[in-house]
Design a protein around this nucleic acid. Sequence first.
DNA 1: GAATTTTCAAAATTTTATGCGGTACAAATG
DNA 2: CATTTGTACCGCATAAAATTTTGAAAATTC
Lengths: 160, 160
Amino acid sequence: MDTSIKVKFDKIDRKILEILQANAKITNAQLSKDIGLSPAPTLERVKKLEQSGIIKSYHAKLDAEKIGLGVSTFVLVSLIGHNKGNIDAFMKEINGIPEVIECHHITGTGDFILKIIAKDITAYQKLMLEKVSEIREVDSMQSMVILSTFKDSKVLPIPE
Amino acid sequence: MDTSIKVKFDKIDRKILEILQANAKITNAQLSKDIGLSPAPTLERVKKLEQSGIIKSYHAKLDAEKIGLGVSTFVLVSLIGHNKGNIDAFMKEINGIPEVIECHHITGTGDFILKIIAKDITAYQKLMLEKVSEIREVDSMQSMVILSTFKDSKVLPIPE
DNA sequence: GAATTTTCAAAATTTTATGCGGTACAAATG
DNA sequence: CATTTGTACCGCATAAAATTTTGAAAATTC
């Protein structure tokens, strides 16, 4: 299974991708002006980028504070075993917890790093005690509370 | 300065936010059906959510592999000093590196955690040696390479 | 309980997306 | 070297969607 299917795209496509990453709500007319094409071929290119899977989806970014989410953390998690069964079981549990918004398998001392978001410290503690540490496969955890976020870019640096 | 400006929103607004986080490209007509209102008040609510800053922006999510970005990492960074001047200088440098897509100030042993994305290990190494570790304020760094990502949700769990 | 404000729906208008020839250019072929 | 073939583009026509307007209903306030 090749998960790194490279799809060809040129300079114009790259520009489209940069613009849509930064602002998905731009109209096709404006986008076409920005890249120097007429609307028809512009739209065609966007559709192709969507169909090829280069563009996976479109999302609204919310202000976490304003919707009452005051606590964000990274959590390093070690599992009791590293076999596939354990990892699958862990993943399944994690997928059921909406407060865990990211879960990555990583190298190094910990096995996984999670990004978690909660209302406040109380809610976070409750979540950790009652949900995360209850997962059978979890051995140890180490929390890093985010004090402030200086950069949270939704724009990936597209290589040449 | 109050960074946690709470803005009122009801159950319908919450539903709108959930839908737009998962799929920003939904038409207003479809959104209005999903939430059980007619198009006009639906659009009005969305505009209000945008103006109040609850919805900050809209972004296209790309497939990192397909655009040739094969290596993602988290990096724990310790600074040589923790005074404001140092932190500001560090932030300024970080903002100029597009491969650093996230930068958070955190509690714990490290001072900062970065999320970095690069073409491959070679490009990553070059980036770290020539850009990140060259920043004067950086003391030590610890990289955690992402082997695979199991969850990367763009939907925040909105509290009651 | 009357007045005010807010929320909503329906219809009209404006804006935007989309599909359709037709053309120019480039690479491949005879 | 001419011809073919294919691709990418443009401009226009049409369809779809967003947005505004108007006025009614519901909730809130006094």
